[in-house]
Amino acid sequence: MKIQQISMFLENKPGRIIEPCKVLAKNNINILTLSLADTQQFGILRLIIKEWQKAKEVLEQEGFIVNVTEVVAIEVEDKPGGLTKILEAIEETGLNIEYIYAFTFRSGDKAVIVFRFDKPDLAIQTLQQKGINVLDSVQLYDKANQ
């Protein structure tokens, strides 16, 4: 059920973010969604990519340091209170969220949000018990192509 996210280290200075994007473009790799976390000195670029193994390989060839992390994609009702409902469910379980960001596409009438938990397996298990729809990678990449 887990989705592979790749992340890389970037220095916080002009022109840095374009470099990895160029590498992906040159290799015809599409980015499904991304998030950039930054501090004054550096940033971490996180990407969800269907062909993440290939992306990792080509980026590493260009000298980037690439990490692979497992994240969870969750369907959220796209209306006021939709996210709160999910967050409340998570809060009850005592799970810790490291960070979240959204996909650019929708799953029917629902939004899809990426959650990074420190314990992804436990998170998936508990969320499913609470009836929350966790997308696996096949479903996710299907929806991305619709």
Binding site: Q5, S7, F9, T39, R46, T69
Partner: peptide, 15 residues
């Protein structure tokens, strides 16, 4: 220089 072993997707860890 950041190495693979040092790098993490979490800001808090790098800080």
């Amino acid at each position: 220089e950041v190495t693979r072993e040092m790098f993490s997707d979490r800001i808090s860890k790098l800080e």
